[in-house]
Simulated scan of single mutants.
Amino acid sequence: MHLLQAFVGSLLPMTEQDFALLTPHVAARTVAKGALLLEAGQVCGSIFFVNTGFFRMYYVGADGHEVNCRFAEAAGFLTDYQSFLTQQPSRYSWQAMQAAEVLVLPYALVQRLYRESPGWDRFGRLMAERVYQQVNERIELLQFLTPEQRYQHVQRHQPALLQQVSQAHLASYLGVQPESLSRIRHRLGQK
């Protein structure tokens, strides 16, 4: 709970009273390596805060291949925001890439926090803005940058990702085949 409180406090100072509205209703859940926290077709009924571990968000394309579109590590939130907001089935799956522990914030709790606390309501808006920025950055990464520029972007902004995921998962995230990623890495090593 301390990691969550520190993360929240880094974005928005929260009173002890506001935080006390959350504390008794949050449950910890362990997730085994390889297990799905959310499976495509399920409604995302919670927001999760990652205490430990690492997750990937992916969907299965029309060709049957998995496409990675996001990663989440400790001290961060993860959810399918569209499914969470609409309470409609998700198109995405969240898989633990390492054994993990998450804190579970159910939909009803989040909605109650928004109603009862201006601090939590503001925090929710800040998180929604952050989600929008992440989604927009992902879209622009794929639309406006070459595969080599995408790889360089990850090197600059998410360097730990290069150590945490396999070449196949990284290639999928970058929108290239693993062989193309090998060539990009080789070319950049030559410069």
Results as ranks from 00 to 15, higher is better:
L11K: 14
L11W: 15
L12F: 05
P13S: 15
P13F: 06
T15L: 10
E16A: 10
E16V: 04
D18V: 02
F19S: 01
A20G: 05
L21H: 06
L22S: 03
T23S: 04
T23C: 03
P24W: 00
P24T: 01
H25V: 00
H25R: 11
V26I: 13
A27E: 01
A27L: 03
A28F: 05
A28P: 15
A28W: 05
R29C: 02
R29W: 02
R29M: 03
T30C: 06
T30N: 08
V31G: 00
V31E: 06
A32K: 15
K33A: 10
K33D: 11
G34R: 13
G34E: 03
L37P: 02
L38C: 05
E39F: 03
E39W: 06
A40M: 09
A40N: 12
Q42P: 02
C44S: 07
S46V: 13
S46I: 13
I47G: 01
I47L: 02
F48D: 00
F49Y: 11
V50R: 11
N51P: 08
T52N: 07
T52M: 03
G53W: 00
G53C: 07
F54K: 00
F55Q: 01
R56K: 13
R56H: 06
M57F: 08
M57H: 09
M57V: 13
Y58D: 04
Y59C: 08
V60P: 09
V60M: 08
D63Y: 07
G64F: 08
G64R: 12
G64C: 07
H65S: 08
E66H: 03
V67K: 12
V67I: 08
N68G: 09
C69E: 04
C69G: 13
R70S: 14
A72H: 07
E73N: 10
E73D: 12
A74K: 04
A75C: 12
G76E: 02
G76P: 07
F77Q: 05
F77W: 12
F77C: 04
L78I: 14
L78Y: 05
T79M: 01
T79P: 01
D80G: 07
D80V: 05
D80K: 13
Y81W: 14
Y81L: 09
Q82C: 09
S83I: 02
S83R: 12
F84E: 02
L85V: 13
T86V: 09
Q87N: 11
Q87G: 05
Q88W: 10
Q88K: 15
Q88M: 12
Q88A: 12
P89S: 05
